[in-house]
């Protein structure tokens, strides 16, 4: 069964089409890298799968059923990372707040709830830091806790919105490996959005590239090509491969890097623009 299916879906926000007439299918058990420049619609796509953004036209199906809020089969790690950042609440309780969180009642997890918290903390390797108050954790550590929250309730589909943001290369590698391990262990489907393709290369099955209101889903070799990306960026794009790494270039600039490094300014030399994240 397909985990996600878009049938001629148009997503509209504030009167503008973020995605126009897109059809695509993600098989259960796939890891998909979701890429595209700022404002391409990565977050909007995930929110649509969650049922938080209704399709203006077309139909979105999740495990065969129309996308709707409150689907326990879907876990979500939102892009907003500021939540709870200055609370003096320990990480464990931050994660425990998610257990059965949609049901009315008292905010104390029972025995089963505590076991679930232990399970997800172990899965993301956050058991040791879960005793510290959130205000005393780093951004990367908090990201692990957010991932743990997303795993509460054993979802079959995991939507991770830019889990690599703010992480140094080593932790980026850890999170990507973690996603791959979760898939191997739990057999879940993962949508993993990112601004850079290279850190994901070994772990993803296919890429979903968004841009210009369009979507292209396929293997890296099918999608990361000059013609496809030129269509998505609406500009002449060149794809350069260097020692197993891929650079998306426009007029000598590395597009993916520039998407989140506006402060650099000017054009980059090809190799000067990229650092190694082995």
């Amino acid at each position: 069964m397909n985990a996600i299916e878009f049938r001629q879906v148009t997503l509209r926000l504030g009167g503008r089409d973020v995605l126009g007439d897109a059809s695509l299918a993600v098989a259960a058990g796939e890891i998909i890298g979701v890429l595209g420049p700022n404002g391409a619609g990565k977050t909007t796509l995930m929110r649509a799968i969650l049922g938080l953004v209704p399709a203006a036209r077309g139909e979105i199906r999740v495990f065969g059923r129309p996308a709707a809020r409150g689907n326990p089969a879907v876990g979500y790690m939102p892009q907003t990372r500021s939540t709870g950042a200055n609370l003096r609440l320990r990480g464990r309780d931050f994660v425990a707040g998610v257990v059965n969180g949609h049901r009315p009642g008292l905010p104390f997890p029972g025995k089963a709830g505590r076991a679930e918290v232990d399970r997800v903390l172990d899965l993301v390797g956050a058991a040791a830091l879960a005793g510290r108050p959130l205000a005393e954790t780093s951004g990367g550590e908090r990201q692990r806790l957010l991932l743990a929250q997303a795993l509460v309730g054993r979802p079959r589909l995991l939507l991770l919105d830019e889990p690599l943001a703010n992480l140094d290369p080593r932790f980026q590698g850890d999170v990507v490996a973690l996603a791959a391990a979760l898939r191997a262990e739990l057999g879940i489907t993962i949508l993993f959005s990112a601004h850079e393709l290279n850190p994901l290369l070994g772990a993803i099955d296919r890429v979903l590239y968004l841009g210009n209101g369009q979507a292209a889903l396929g293997t890296v070799d099918e999608v990361i090509t000059g013609p496809v990306l030129s269509r998505l960026y609406g500009a002449e794009i060149e794809v350069v491969r260097v020692r197993g790494r891929i650079f998306v270039m426009s007029g000598g600039q590395d597009m993916e890097r520039d998407a989140h490094r506006h402060d650099h300014g000017g054009a980059h030399a090809l190799l000067g623009a990229s650092h190694d994240h082995a």
Binding site: G70, P72, T80, L87, G97, G101, H102, P107, Q149
Partner: peptide
């Protein structure tokens, strides 16, 4: 109190989970 805590700690996830 339980959904309130969830919505306070992690509003976007809470919304997705049907709160």
């Amino acid at each position: 109190s339980r959904p309130l805590l969830f919505a306070s700690l992690q509003p976007e996830l809470a919304e997705a989970k049907g709160v």
